[in-house]
Design a protein around this nucleic acid. Sequence first.
DNA 1: TCAAGTATACTACCATGGTAGTATAAAAAG
DNA 2: CTTTTTATACTACCATGGTAGTATACTTGA
Lengths: 255, 255
Amino acid sequence: MTFRKVLDIIKVYYHGSIDREAITIQDLTARRVPGSRASAREFVYSTLRQSILHLDLKPGTKMSEQEISEQFKVSRTPVREVFVHLNQDGLVEIYPQRGTYVSLINLRALEEGRWVREIVEKAVIEEAAGRLTEEDLHKLESNLAAQEVCYRNKNYLEMLGLDDEFHGTIFRACGKERTYEMVKQLNIDLYRLRVLRLSHDFRWDQILNQHRQILQALREGKGEEAKRIMGEHLRMVIVEKDQLLADYPEYFVDL
Amino acid sequence: MTFRKVLDIIKVYYHGSIDREAITIQDLTARRVPGSRASAREFVYSTLRQSILHLDLKPGTKMSEQEISEQFKVSRTPVREVFVHLNQDGLVEIYPQRGTYVSLINLRALEEGRWVREIVEKAVIEEAAGRLTEEDLHKLESNLAAQEVCYRNKNYLEMLGLDDEFHGTIFRACGKERTYEMVKQLNIDLYRLRVLRLSHDFRWDQILNQHRQILQALREGKGEEAKRIMGEHLRMVIVEKDQLLADYPEYFVDL
DNA sequence: TCAAGTATACTACCATGGTAGTATAAAAAG
DNA sequence: CTTTTTATACTACCATGGTAGTATACTTGA
């Protein structure tokens, strides 16, 4: 259980040029982007969150206050606050006086998340059809262009992020940003699963194609068709419980 | 939106019309059992959460670490952790080095919450129809009986809780507990609004009646009818923006 | 009278030490 | 060898002191 990957991410965040030993709070705050007040808490939170979502921290990994605070060169107080936050996200489990662990991927939650996502995305896309502004459509087009580049370069992790952004843009265009955040929250385990199977379990060409069709239907104001394609699109994520439990038994829980 | 802008809004209304002496949590803390296993953090969290939801702490009220920790007789550390938690719930806004305030009720979020709730509840009730076990139906019946008692006693706050429980039971029966939590989270401001208008703005008799009809339709497996009634039921909560802003200008924000 | 600068009293943020509870392994008893 | 007891090394939890940043009242200067 090493945190080397986490440290790599820290370096990337801070322009990749900071000596690991030299990272202090002062450095972090000194390099903050004007307008964004990066507190230690926020920094540790966003870093750890991403590490968990990208499976740099595997499900089940132990994360002690002590160890994390040493790695991040901050005290245990902000780390504890981050744990509370991540616990609410469902990304870590806190066992008092025993330890804090990265949550296992919950297969039941996976199914439920997909169910609600299909319900909500279908409703949203129906609202979106014909209502999107030119700017919205342009944003979606740019996103698709980026997706194509990622597809050609087989940069699937970034493609996953763009996928999320594609759907998020549609929600935002309808004034449903909070809804999108909630759906994303419910599908947080699905996200980890998709990262886990990035290279071998996805038909990225089909996904890309469906995105194109959705955009086309939206542009033409064909709500029903967009809804239909979206349904197919979301049902593509097949969760083979038995296979997953066989391949990665230590990552999953089913309750 | 800048912090400053929000602060100005709060400042004006806070000094203008909110009685500082009304912010007392002493009564609630009396319920803490000394031998209880609940951690200080959990106790403070659940107490404050309920206080905010029940409007014992009005929107816009200042809540300093110092003050809260003294009232709860705990240190500032767990209080800070609670603030992080409440902040994620959307119940408080933290302005670093400035203060922490009970969130204003967001009228946009209100509309969005109602929208997604109607979408999801309709889908759930369709799944529920004909699938509920005898135990589920019995639970719903007991709930309705309790609602009738509350109605006769004009105990509307408890009735509101039973209302939530009624809907929650249906979700749980379908294995959609997490979805329910999400919907509740998105409707957290609606809850506060309902508490605010408890006595004068609701037709509790109609609500009770609709609950009865929903249960009946569920028992008979009439999914379509249950769905229709649920739609009416949820659309009953009318949000008159202008009226609200006129009556309680200091409680709301619209962005 | 009024604007600009200063002093003071706050705030949330972070570091650190101590504590009760828990798991593990060694030692003792059967 | 097995079970029980004890010792030790952890854990998250909480209390407390100090700090940088912010707002406000006060003083100063025109």
